[in-house]
Nucleic acid binder design. Structure first.
Length: 503
RNA sequence: GGUCCGUUUGUCUAGGGGUCAGGACGGUAGAUUCUCAGUCUACAGACGACGGUUCGAUUCCGUCACGGACUACCA
């Protein structure tokens, strides 16, 4: 097989959607699996939709995911430039080739004229198509005299170049994922290849660049499937061998209908973008929400692809070995934010306590706490398996750092009995007498005291937890007080008694 | 409306002419415990519908229904 070269070709029109990231990922995995190269091309032919910062965002996103670009704007390569705006002259030349060969023509119809024709057809319950059936009656170099359109051209009248779609011809083509597809050209229109602003449309730029950049496989979203017959025809007109095509199914909303959009994320509280988008209307990102890039990538890879085994956890390296385009599904995948969290949980469990302590220290610094790394490791060992994100550790352990400010009224009502005060006082003096307080973690002193006195464990431990934590949650009490120390433990008992003791 | 694509539990999916239709997320229950969470165990839950082909269809074919994409001088 010839050298595998794939490209990811986003438009810099805003932040990169996770569907786009998945497309990039599948391209990358396919390339690496087949010892190929991954090319990043920026498709910025639409001046009107260009958004400042989007290009940088795309690159940062890929970088965060661990998707390494082999050829691109920053990386260089033998087939540049890799920004379409810088290839402007190339497209003009290739558009002319098609006009000269008679496969494309000049059209002078204004957008307003076309719009009105479309409306008229719509009112009549039909669809206006600019093709063999209508072009003779429209304003273009096929329908009017050569002398006339040449004069329009020299006068500088605005025009576009349209592809001359043949009449009533069945086009057969293959898609790696969907198999053979047949479309009749009569249902297709004479697509604009070259715009009046001097820039090509996607259809022209895409084909010319893929050919010039020697792209072997085009892996892109399903939204491009309807224009595949056009692309196949244009390749044929140029006499070029088309690349192989694979159209990926779309990512769908977690609920309801349609494809995943930014709105869904806002509504249901999960990010739809890999990174935070800081411009204009801001958007949340997976990175900032605390996801690990390898967990994010793993989750995305399994959304629409599966290895055929029951393995679910894959490093990106393992993915490049296991990936196969044949195992990409045909139908759209509904995005499940819960499963995304599960993946992060799995990856967090695999991290060492030391690594997590380092991450947590950063987080705590922002909260104004400066805690010794060894103490943080102990803390992490207590709550690690119950959290999915580093920020969850804080939510699970805030009471380790600060005494409760309020006490859960429900718990007081249910658990605070007449003897609670005296029991806690007894416990207090027991703890106060301990020389090696940290040992409370493993030494059954308290248990022994409860047994000897014949007390009820629940009756004591629950109110004890109430004064230390403020409510009924958290790890084992002995782990908590061992960590916060004797002084703090006694202080919290005293405070609790003085506040709740009145009841 | 038209063209094309798709349809296995609530979700991601495996499978494939005869299987107990498998796994994961989520859900429920029990166990564990001083609490929550977690963990472990168990349980519930699917081949869109209807016709064919066949000894036999979830798997092949057809029709319908539903879902999706596209239908721009946007990508």
């Amino acid at each position: 097989m010839a050298q595998v070269r794939v490209r990811f070709a986003p438009s810099p029109t805003g932040p990169l959607h996770i569907g786009g990231v998945r497309t990039a990922l599948y391209n990358y995995l396919f390339a690496k699996k087949n010892d190929g190269l991954f090319i990043l091309r920026i498709e910025d032919t639409d001046k009107a939709r260009f958004v400042e910062g989007a290009e940088k965002y795309i690159m940062e996103s890929l970088n965060w995911c661990g998707i390494i670009v082999d050829e691109g704007i920053n990386e260089g390569g033998d087939y540049g430039p890799y920004r379409q705006i810088d290839r402007k002259e190339i497209y003009r030349q290739y558009a002319d080739i098609l006009v000269d060969s008679g496969d494309a023509y000049y059209a002078f119809d204004t957008p307003e004229q076309l719009e009105s024709l479309r409306r008229k057809s719509e009112n009549a319950g039909q669809t206006f198509i600019y093709n063999a059936a209508t072009r003779e009656s429209l304003d273009n170099s096929v329908s009017i005299q050569e002398a006339v359109w040449k004069e329009k051209l020299t006068r500088g009248e605005p025009y576009v170049i349209r592809y001359k779609m043949p009449h009533n011809e069945d086009i057969h083509f293959d898609d790696i994922i969907r198999g053979n597809i047949v479309v009749n050209t009569s249902t297709l229109d004479d697509k604009v290849l070259f715009k009046s602003d001097g820039m090509p449309t996607y259809h022209l730029a895409n084909i010319v660049d893929d050919h010039l950049m020697k792209i072997s496989h085009v892996i892109r979203g399903e939204e491009w499937l309807p224009s595949l017959p056009l692309h196949v025809m244009v390749y044929r007109s140029y006499g070029w061998d088309p690349p192989h095509f694979a159209h990926l199914p779309l990512l769908l909303k977690p609920d309801g209908k349609g494809k995943l959009s930014k709105r869904d994320g806002d509504k249901m509280g999960f990010p739809v973008f890999p990174l935070f988008w800081p411009y204009g209307e801001t958007a949340k990102g997976y990175r900032e929400e605390g996801y690990y890039p390898d967990a994010f990538v793993n989750m995305l890879a399994l959304l629409g692809w599966n290895p055929g085994t029951e393995q679910e956890i894959f490093s990106i390296k393992e993915l490049t070995e296991a990936f196969s385009i044949d195992r990409v599904g045909k139908s759209g995948s509904r995005f499940d934010p819960e499963k995304a969290k599960w993946f992060n949980h799995q990856y967090l469990q695999k991290r060492s306590n030391n690594q997590l302590a380092l991450e947590l220290r950063e987080f705590l610094r922002a909260q104004g706490y400066h805690i010794d790394i060894v103490r943080l490791e102990v803390l992490i060992s207590l709550v690690k398996e119950r959290v999915s994100f580093v920020k969850d550790i804080w939510e699970q352990t805030d009471f380790f750092f600060k005494a409760p400010e309020t006490y859960d009224q429900e718990v007081i009502k249910k658990r605070w009995k007449e003897d609670s005060l005296s029991l806690l006082l007894e416990l207090r003096s027991l703890l106060e007498k301990m020389d090696d307080f940290e040992a409370v973690r493993t030494e059954p002193v308290v248990k022994k005291w409860i047994m000897d006195k014949g007390y009820n464990t629940g009756a004591i431990m629950n109110v004890f937890r109430l004064v230390i934590v403020g409510t009924l949650r958290g790890p084992r009490m002995f782990d908590i007080i061992s960590w916060i120390g004797k002084e703090e433990t006694l202080k919290r008992i005293d405070k609790g008694l003085s506040v709740i003791g009145k009841y």
